[in-house]
């Protein structure tokens, strides 16, 4: 797996050109019009990957933490203008497109941040479609959330993210061949100026949650759930 990943990294790096020091390590996501599901209007037909590729790439930079209190639909994951449409973009686009219409029952939240637990992420596993994302998880796309978990052993020190897990991992699955990440994980992206120290203690993360398959171009790690952290709190 590691080897495949690194092959993937090499390809992605080649496709991506120079990495920026912004949040460019998130692979671009479909530049499609956002389908507002908040009004529960019938979903238009999902655009195909081919269609999305002919659209111009919006120059959306990473937004600061959203504190939009109005009930709202799923948002796109931030785009990175430096990433041309490549393999990773198609992957993310395909899943994001396929996923959005499945917000069958949009949930609105009175609180902000919204508390969510890892065991609320999924609602079963369908043998033909994979893990079924819960309505709560889908509804939290773009919302500010608070979640508790453990910091997995870092992949490498200079990364701008770490992996938050439900259970404490004694080792880094990504670092050893043959091991897998558990399902219930989230990538936690730090602010540019933040540094953090690895800890074995449970921690609470507050920040904006983004849902949708994406590949971190620096490591090749595929993620479904990312949080742009405003605050990290060690629970002693």
């Amino acid at each position: 797996m590691k080897r495949l990943y690194f092959a993937g990294i090499a390809l992605l790096l080649a496709a991506c050109g120079t990495a920026t020091d912004q949040h460019s390590s998130i692979t671009a996501i479909p530049p499609e019009e956002l389908t507002a599901a908040a009004d529960m209007a019938p979903s238009p037909a999902a655009p195909t990957v081919e269609e999305t590729q002919v659209l111009p790439t919006p120059t959306l930079t990473i937004a600061p933490t959203l504190t939009d209190t109005a009930p709202r639909a799923a948002t796109p994951t931030p785009l990175n203008v430096d990433l041309p449409a490549g393999n990773a973009r198609e992957i993310a686009a395909a899943t994001d497109t396929a996923m959005r219409p499945e917000v069958q029952h949009l949930i609105t939240f009175d609180e902000s941040p919204v508390s969510i637990r890892f065991d609320e992420f999924y609602n079963g596993y369908n043998l033909r479609t994979g893990l079924v994302l819960s309505d709560k998880l889908l509804s939290l796309d773009g919302q500010t959330v608070q979640i508790a978990g453990y910091m997995a052993p870092p992949l490498k020190p200079e990364l701008d993210y770490f992996v938050l897990t439900r259970i404490r991992l004694a080792f880094c699955p990504f670092c050893s061949t043959g091991a897998d990440w558990p399902d219930d994980i989230a990538l936690i992206y730090l602010n540019n100026d933040d540094t953090t120290v690895a800890t074995d203690h449970p921690m609470r993360v507050t920040g904006r949650m983004e849902i949708g398959a994406s590949i971190d171009h620096e490591t090749g790690m595929v993620s479904l759930v990312r949080i742009y952290a405003d605050n990290l709190e060690i629970i002693q």
Partner: peptide, 18 residues
């Protein structure tokens, strides 16, 4: 072994390709 049949973008996949 369903997890080896989905493209990597599907949650619950263990593939590293599409």
């Amino acid at each position: 072994g369903a997890q080896y049949l989905f493209p990597q973008s599907t949650e619950g996949s263990r593939r590293a390709d599409d």
